[in-house]
Computed example of a mutant assay.
Amino acid sequence: MKTLIAYSSKTGNTRKVGEAVLKAFPQGEIVDISDVTAVNDYDLVVVGTWIDKGTADTKALRFIDTIEGKRVAYFFTLGAYPDSKHAEDCITAIDKLFTDKGNEIVGRFHCQGAIDPKLIAWMSELPEKHPHSPNPERLKRWEDASKHPNEEDFDNACNTFTEILAGL
């Protein structure tokens, strides 16, 4: 099965997960979203994105909007915990992006990823009452996120997509 793995990555997290996903696809090709020229040549399009404001980042959003009537899968990294309500909401939002264009979603994967240090610096300067200002819970999550993606995440991504491929 000829597979395109197209990713958008700000800090390198999503690219690294994409490289782990590639191991599941003997006929896979991995490309930065900016360098994709055509998706119609592929049997499966796998999109990797980082989460920005509860959905795919802008570059990935533009790319996803060009995909219609294809068999797709996706993966994403986010600073929030992977079992959080925020992660569930991201899945719902990204599913809708694909299904609104008549695509068939055959699988998905997500894991925590380190947050851009520039974003942490910005949030660290926010007033105490701001919803994104540092608090003990948020500081702990930022610290936890800094350890991801890790080898376990990469193995989980590869295994997830190996299972997806086996089911097609």
Rank of each mutant, 00 (worst) to 15 (best):
K140Y: 08
P149I: 00
V72L: 11
S9T: 00
I115T: 09
F76S: 07
S124F: 06
R62D: 14
T66H: 09
N159I: 13
D116K: 07
K118W: 12
G113D: 03
P26I: 06
C90S: 11
F98G: 10
A20F: 00
L44G: 04
T11H: 04
Y7A: 01
I91S: 02
T160N: 07
L44P: 13
D43L: 09
T58S: 10
A166G: 12
G28W: 02
T92L: 13
R71K: 15
T162Q: 10
I94W: 04
F75K: 00
E88Y: 11
G107V: 14
Y42C: 11
I51S: 00
K2C: 12
S133V: 08
L4E: 08
A121H: 10
V39C: 13
P82F: 07
H132K: 11
D153S: 02
E143C: 05
A157L: 03
I64N: 01
A114E: 11
E68R: 15
D41M: 08
D43H: 13
E163Y: 03
E19V: 00
F154I: 03
A20G: 00
I67Q: 10
K2S: 14
W142K: 04
I105W: 05
A80H: 08
V45M: 08
Y74C: 09
I105Y: 07
G28D: 05
T55E: 06
T49I: 04
L119G: 07
L126M: 12
P131G: 09
S8D: 03
L168G: 02
D95C: 11
V36Y: 00
A93C: 04
H132V: 02
A121Y: 09
H132P: 05
M1Q: 09
D41S: 12
S84G: 05
T49F: 05
V47R: 00
F76D: 03
